[in-house]
Each structure stands twice: as C-alpha cells, then as structure tokens.
Design a binder for these strands. Structure first.
Length: 203
DNA sequence: AACATGATCAACT
DNA sequence: GTTGATCATGTTT
C-alpha cells in the first residue's frame, strides 16, 4: 500500500533539468491531486519529452503564444491544453531559464481515489482509467482552468514512492508527424497501464 | 488544414 | 485479442 507523503514531493530542482532526463525519471513517480478533500493518486508509467529547441513536434517550437505560455514559465508548472477540440492533456514544465519545454504525462496506474476516477472518466475498468494522456486528464478531472498551476502545493504534487529500479524503455513519440526520429517516449516495460505498444530500447 | 486523442466498429488472426 | 478506418470536436496556424 502506498503512503501519500507530501514531504517526498518532487521539488524545483527535479524539474529544472534536461527534459529527456526528467521524462525518464518521472516513470514510477506518484501524481497526487486533492479534489473536495478526496485524494486521487496514480503511478506514472508513460511520458514524452517535448524539447525547448530543435523539436518540431513541441508546442513551443513556434515560440511563445497564449496557448503555450505555461511551457515558458518556471520548472514545475502545470501545462494543460485542449486537443482535437474535446480532450485535455497535462504536462509538467521542465528546464531552466524559461526555455519552453515540458513532459507530457501519457499513462498511469491508478492507486487511490479509484471510485472518483471511475466517475469522472465514466468507465469501470481500472486498467483503462489513465491509459492515454486525455483519459488520464479526464480521470483526474483536469480542466483548462488549471493551466499554469504550480506542482508544489498540497492540492497538486508529484512524489517519489520508493527508489525502485524500474525497467524503462524508450521509443518514438505517439501521435505526431514531425520529429518521429527522436526516441523521446519513456514507459515502464510490460506495464498493463501504458497507452500503446510495448516495444522500445533500454534506456 | 492540421492537430502531443479516443471511441466505435468491421474484419481479421 | 488485435488492427485499421473513420469520425467527433474546436482551437490554432
């Protein structure tokens, strides 16, 4: 059983690093969100890095805009965007000096608040609750109004459960047409909670 | 016109 | 079970 421990919260130093490293290191960490005094928690099993430079798939590639401004803010800021008009996706801002980089959270294993997640997500199977970036955001009831929130509050944070040695693989990112040569998707090998194929190279 | 997606359904193996 | 086509939906370029 997981003990939610705010004292193990990932801090600014964690996010204030190379985006690729942060994306890899986020695998196995626990995302916690408190809603109406209910705690939702899930273990992150799949992420993607979106780089500050030379990455045509990144929202920041065209420079700072109203939509992507969160990516240019402090490391440890939440970036929420609407995709295909209907879905929301969540990212954690990385890198120093406000460079325009973030990690997309693509999938997680539900741990606490599973009944609440089922209600928000309108699905029963635990395995499907946080499978895919928009499904994860839906299970956690993230909205566009939470864009630019801090990841350092007791309402919303990420922490390290234990220093386990997870087998992590890397592959091309999902659902993009540019930058497919970059292997910037990271996932927990053989997890039943990841959103797509289990093929990748060791990190 | 494209888009960092997901649901659904048909047609396989 | 799995894979591929199709579409809903609205914001951004």
């Amino acid at each position: 059983m997981i003990n939610i421990d705010i004292n193990k919260m990932l801090n600014h130093d964690f996010y204030n690093r190379n985006t690729e490293i942060v994306a890899k290191d986020l695998i196995g960490k626990i995302l916690v969100k408190k809603i109406d005094n209910k705690i939702l928690a899930a273990r992150i099993v799949e992420t993607e890095a979106y780089l500050p430079e030379n990455d045509p798939a990144s929202h920041s590639f065209i420079g700072k805009t109203k939509r992507n401004q969160a990516m240019f803010e402090k490391a440890g800021t939440l970036y929420v965007y609407t995709i295909y008009g209907v879905h929301r996706c969540i990212n954690f801002v990385t890198e120093e000096e406000y460079r325009g980089a973030a990690v997309l959270i693509r999938a997680a294993e539900p741990i606490m608040g599973i009944e609440e997640m089922k209600r928000y997500r309108e699905k029963k199977e635990k395995k499907l609750l946080c499978k895919g970036p928009a499904n994860l955001a839906k299970s956690f009831n993230f909205s566009i109004y939470e864009d630019r929130k801090s990841l350092f509050t007791d309402e919303l944070f990420v922490f390290e459960d234990a220093d386990l040695n997870y087998p992590i693989l890397r592959s091309s990112r999902i659902g993009i047409s540019k930058g497919i040569e970059l292997k910037l998707r990271f996932f927990l090998k053989d997890s039943e909670f990841i959103s797509a194929n289990n093929k990748g190279e060791p990190v």
